[in-house]
Design a protein around this nucleic acid. Structure first.
Length: 601
DNA sequence: GCCGTTTTCGGCCCGACTGTTTTCAGTCG
């Protein structure tokens, strides 16, 4: 949480990159140690600036050496070792490392053989044929590098695409590959399945004993701009948007193992494999299986060839994820939690959180009708849609008057309220709350007057403008809305739009503490472009006892289905049923709302 | 650099694909 931690994590990652260049090997154990340390610091709830060297060294993933470096940074503002590596390896080398196809060995080769230490140098060496003449390189390698440099410049290794843009592609590809004869199952995995905010690429997994027609169908998809590589079971393509998609075809009996493997995260997988090794097993994308010791020296000599490092024996588990986790003595870990930030330990002791599920959602508390300008469907249709989806309660929250483009006057609001009460009475199959989405102005003030606001059943207050103001101003603005006696929830907390604009800057501790103190709910907005509040904020809010609601912010009947995204996102933040008010029964929900308002007034 | 139901040294996750190699190194995920 604390800023120092993010800063230190960034420096440790830089140390990892520089060490990778320095030791010319991605395997260099120091590199991984620094990466682990960076993640450990980023995930720490305590502020490293407040911790002693010995306290730091006690943190899992940090040792004496890194603890000393962190103290050095906190005390002096610099890390000697880092400065030294920065001097030794100019920024240009780090840029070279970002080029797809160039790893630490390649970068070192360029530097030592040709004196090439930056992108311009590489371009020149490519142009005059010096690259192709290098030992271990050739014309083909030079061509690939030339293409990589031209196409994506520096960024493609780290260019990430918002989930909202990538997920539809993933779902389309999976649907198409499911139709291929011989395909038993298909799914997307990777960071998309973990529901990260953005993805580096897509991982698609197919279960089939006949890979060739799957590969054929995959490279023939209309999305495919070019095939990056293709072997017997693994194929990589790039879409016209420049998104990379990896396909793996595995035997149906291995589908569970492959799902675990390709869902990741990498760090989570490493923990699982270490666990497997301790039990005398090995875990790969095909199975959790017995580890067979390599033959002893005599046998190896007799065979007159080096012994393989390990061979696998009988399969312990492979078909489903549940089987594999169970064999490893773990509860099945929901994909959204597989980041190695404590979930393995919780799975071991059976203490994984009771994460919110789609089936548990009983109500939707942020919905628009065609009364406000940007809504598409009339009140009756929205209510019918909610009933069809099995909801017990629904809040209609059209934009209030302040949002000039599509806001609603007081009179129109009252008219809608009469319609809503009448509809509720006539139907008798759903509880309807009359609400509004208020605009939080830059000074924290809201639409209408306090007296009128007090007559609503449910009020969502959200930021819609003035995104670039100082953190103190934004925090005061939002906290004022949280403390307003009639406001029951804060909509899309940061106002971010993925791939378009960042959210407002908030002192999140202050905001969450105000929400916890007043009982005002924080919304988890289900729109994938928003995913707002962020997973990190949800996680911290759960820790501080904040109540959340998962809302669709639907502007049409169809958008009521967005709730599945909101649920996945909330799970990433560790949201439990207990802290998610719209999983509660109508009675419990209404009683809670009454309590909050009574306490605030 | 970190870590320990094979504890203070000697390990450290696993495999596919590519391009350069005649059996493998480098890169990637």
């Amino acid at each position: 949480m604390a800023r120092t931690n993010d800063e230190v994590a960034r420096l440790l990652n830089e140390l990892a990159v520089l060490t990778e260049i320095d030791e010319s090997s991605p395997q260099a154990f120091r590199v991984r140690a620094y990466q682990n340390a960076a993640r450990a610091v980023a995930g720490l709830s305590r502020d490293v600036a407040q911790m002693s060297a010995s306290e730091l060294a006690d943190v899992r993933g940090l040792g004496k050496s890194t603890a000393t470096k962190i103290r050095e940074y906190v005390d002096t503002g610099t890390i000697g070792k880092l400065e030294q590596l920065r001097d030794k390896h100019p920024v240009g080398k780090r840029d070279l490392l970002k080029i797809p196809g160039l790893g630490p060995k390649g970068v070192e080769l360029l530097s030592s053989e040709l004196g090439v230490t930056d992108l311009d140098g590489l371009k020149a060496a490519l142009a005059d044929g010096r690259i192709a003449a290098l030992p271990g390189m050739g014309e083909k390698t030079a061509d690939n590098l030339r293409e990589a440099v031209e196409r994506s410049g520096l960024s493609s290794k780290e260019q990430r695409v918002p989930l909202v843009d990538a997920l539809p592609i993933a779902e389309r590809i999976v649907a198409r590959l499911r139709e291929v004869p011989g395909v038993v199952d298909a799914a997307y995995a990777g960071s998309a399945r973990r529901y990260r905010d953005d993805v580096g690429d897509l991982d698609v997994l197919v279960a089939s004993d006949d890979p060739d027609p799957v590969t054929e169908a995959f490279v023939s998809l209309p999305d495919v701009a070019r095939t990056v590589g293709s072997g017997g079971t693994k194929t990589s393509i790039a879409t016209h948007d420049g998104l990379g998609v990896d396909l793996r075809v595995v035997p149906p009996a291995s589908f569970g193992a492959a799902l675990v493997y390709f869902t990741g995260s990498k760090a989570h997988n490493i923990r699982l494999r270490q666990r497997a090794l301790k039990r005398g097993w090995t875990l790969n994308e095909y199975a959790l299986a017995e580890l067979v010791d390599p033959p002893d020296d005599a046998d190896a000599e007799a065979a007159d060839e080096p012994a393989p490092a390990a061979r696998t024996g009988d399969v312990v588990a492979a078909a489903t994820e549940e089987d594999i986790y169970a064999a490893l003595g773990l509860a099945w870990v929901p994909p959204e939690l597989r980041e190695d930030d404590g979930e393995v330990e919780l799975a071991e002791t059976g203490d994984l959180p009771d994460l919110v599920t789609r089936e548990a959602i009983r109500g939707d508390l942020h919905d628009h009708t065609d009364l406000s300008g940007d809504g598409k469907d009339p009140l009756e249709a929205m209510v019918e849609g909610a009933v069809e989806r099995g909801l017990d309660y629904l809040a209609i929250t059209d934009h209030a008057e302040d949002l000039r483009i599509n806001g609603v006057s007081k009179a129109a609001m009252l008219d809608q309220r009469r319609q809503l009460r009448d509809l509720e009475q006539r139907r008798g199959d759903i509880t309807l709350l009359h609400g509004a989405e208020l605009n939080i102005d830059i000074d924290g003030s809201l639409d209408y007057d306090a007296e009128f606001l007090a007559t609503f059943d449910w009020l969502v207050a959200s930021v819609h403008s003035h995104f670039r103001r100082p953190v103190a101003e934004q925090t005061a603005r939002v906290v004022a809305a949280i403390r307003h006696p009639s406001v029951t929830a804060i909509g899309h907390l940061s106002g971010r739009m993925m791939g378009k604009r960042p959210g407002i800057e908030l002192d999140i501790e202050q905001v969450l503490d105000a929400a916890a103190e007043t009982g005002t709910a924080i919304e988890v907005n289900s729109n994938l472009r928003r995913k707002d509040a962020t997973a990190e904020v949800i996680r911290e809010g759960v820790r501080r006892g904040v109540t959340f609601v998962i809302s669709t912010d639907a502007h049409s009947v169809r958008e009521l289905d967005l709730v599945r995204h909101g649920v996945h996102h909330a799970r990433r933040g560790g949201l439990t049923h207990e802290r998610c008010a719209n999983t509660w029964s109508t009675e419990r929900f209404l009683a809670w709302r009454d309590d909050v308002r009574t306490a605030k007034r």
